[in-house]
């Protein structure tokens, strides 16, 4: 059983709650821990903290545990939790917010591969304005050194003409670069 220092956690509590409220546009304090979110979560079986527990960690200001969890990366964003929450907490939005905060902290993600996928995805968007699947997966493989993963599948997709070698970027690459910059400025 882990020992938790609530006095220590309470120091950063208001700041964490404020950031989550801003980013997720929802109030984690509304949660009364019924557990409906966790019962319906398709990925809860693989998470270190249940979605309900993540909300509780935020309520208590336990930033380290929340941002260091596997849960925030394994959430697939299906919003079944939010759909069923009797207190209208946008739980999927809280997961998004915590991933953003973990990124802003420059923290090493608990699920390295999942984070590497998202990085490769956004890199592909920024480069061409649209995702080029082959390029994205290639960059993911380099990033994670999983060079041979899904080789057979890739070949099968190529054969079925569902994995084009060539990207179809926007004519003007600045269109999307401008959006990334604007988002960075707003922070």
């Amino acid at each position: 059983m882990a020992v938790v220092d609530l006095t220590e956690a309470a120091k950063g509590r208001e700041e964490l709650l404020t950031r989550v409220r801003e980013l997720a546009e929802t109030d984690p304090l509304a949660c009364y821990q019924c557990g409906k979110c966790s019962a319906g979560c398709p990925l809860s079986f693989a998470m270190d903290y249940q979605p309900r527990q993540i909300i509780r960690l935020v309520q208590l200001g336990m930033r380290e545990q929340a941002l260091g969890s596997s849960t925030i990366w394994l959430c697939a964003g299906c919003a079944t939790c939010t759909t069923r929450c009797p207190r209208q907490v946008k739980i999927d939005g809280v997961m998004d917010a915590l991933r953003q905060l973990a990124g802003q902290d420059g923290r090493a993600p608990r699920e390295r591969e999942v984070a590497a996928f998202h990085t490769s995805f956004l890199e592909s968007v920024r480069r061409g304005g649209r995702v080029h699947e082959l390029g994205m997966v290639g960059s993911y493989k380099l990033r994670t050194r999983r060079i041979f993963q899904d080789g057979g599948l890739g070949w099968n997709l190529l054969r079925h003409r569902r994995l084009p070698l060539k990207a179809s970027p926007l004519r003007d690459r600045k269109t999307v670069e401008r959006i990334f910059r604007a988002a960075e400025v707003r922070g």
Partner: peptide, 25 residues
């Protein structure tokens, strides 16, 4: 014309504003 990526499934975990601007355009 010249549609851009909507940001799924990655922008919303990276940056709230980016996740709104990409589809918003």
């Amino acid at each position: 014309p010249e549609w851009n990526c909507c940001g799924a499934s990655s922008a919303h975990g990276a940056d709230h504003r980016l996740a709104m601007y990409l589809p918003g355009r």
